[in-house]
């Protein structure tokens, strides 16, 4: 990945341009009749989700509030295990293996990184934030490698030039957009295969948002990215595939339509998708 400044990057603004890497790419994450419940089955949050997300592409999950898109995203790295009473049904596959059968969450999460809605750097120095994952038992990175890996991750997140002289300063002293890029650097330092992004720009201003979007367009060369967003323009700008979720009367989320972002935005098959993307509801 070239460390050119992000402001020079001109790509990634073409509407829904599918990245070509040898025809229909390999499927990285796949949901088969996936159902999700909170409250020990008392509340059905997702119903019969069927979805195939290709490798090294950006898949955007869009839909109105409460449609279950974040729930789906967080099911991919089993963040729900933190919440008592969550139940899954059906299959959610990562590289062909059922995520919910994974015995070791640490192995799973090593391969699936996550970026959260609000930038959440640790109250540590910039360096220690990026090195955090590298120093974990599970990652098995040699001490001598850490300096180089931290620098590379910060370069890949286009943050290096801004922070190289203050690596010992607190990560919390950075601006919101820089904090989010720090979180991305922290996530990619451990070289996952997938990056899950839960509305990564929701707390950022438009300029910081643009920086993150351009970064996503770079990162997709090496990572499979799944991004939840409320911002339709953002979905159109950064993703190659889009999944539109909505809810029924019982507040259960379901997948309405999934396909190439171009098709979803220019030629939606379902009238509910059309209503949503044209702003008639949601």
């Amino acid at each position: 990945m070239s460390p050119q400044p992000i402001t020079d990057s001109k790509q990634g603004v073409v509407l829904g341009q599918a990245r070509t890497n040898g025809g229909m790419s390999q499927i990285e994450i796949e949901a088969r009749d996936f159902n999700f419940f909170y409250d020990n089955g008392g509340f059905k949050a997702l119903k019969d989700i069927n979805l195939r997300m290709p490798r090294h592409q950006v898949t955007a999950l869009i839909g109105p509030s409460g449609c279950g898109k974040s729930t789906f995203l967080r099911a991919i790295n089993r963040m729900h295990d933190q919440t008592p009473g969550t139940v899954t049904q059906g299959e959610l596959l990562f590289e062909g293996e059922d995520i919910n059968r994974a015995e070791d969450l640490i192995v799973l999460r090593r391969k699936i990184g996550m970026i959260f809605q609000r930038p959440n750097p640790f109250p540590m120095s910039i360096f220690d934030n990026v090195a955090y994952g590298l120093r974990l038992e599970a990652q098995g990175v040699r001490k001598s490698e850490i300096n180089d890996r931290v620098e590379q991750a910060l370069r890949d997140a286009y943050l290096w030039d801004e922070v190289k002289d203050k690596l010992r300063h607190s990560g919390l002293a950075l601006s919101g957009g820089q904090q989010q890029r720090l979180c991305i650097a922290r996530a990619i330092a451990v070289k996952p295969e997938v990056l899950l992004m839960d509305e990564p720009c929701a707390a950022l201003d438009p300029i910081a948002t643009l920086a993150i979007e351009e970064l996503i367009n770079e990162l997709v060369k090496n990572y499979t990215i799944v991004i939840v967003t409320h911002n339709m323009q953002q979905a159109a700008r950064v993703s190659q595939y889009t999944a539109f979720f909505t809810t029924d009367d019982s507040r259960t989320g379901q997948l309405v339509e999934f396909g190439h972002t171009t098709d979803i935005f220019t030629n939606p098959k379902d009238s509910r998708t059309e209503d949503y993307i044209t702003g008639r509801f949601g």
Binding site: N77, M79, Q82, L105, I106, V107, R109, R110, G113, M114, F116, R118, N120, P121, F122, P123, M124, Y132, G133, R135, L136, E137, A138, Q139, C183, R186, A187, V190
Partner: peptide, 27 residues
């Protein structure tokens, strides 16, 4: 200690103990 610190650590493949020792207790 904000839950977001714990989530960040767990999502990086930190174990519960590592999360507690390296993030939660220092914070």
């Amino acid at each position: 200690v904000p839950g977001s610190y714990r989530e960040a650590s767990l999502a990086l493949a930190g174990s519960k103990w590592e999360t507690t020792r390296k993030v939660v207790l220092p914070a």
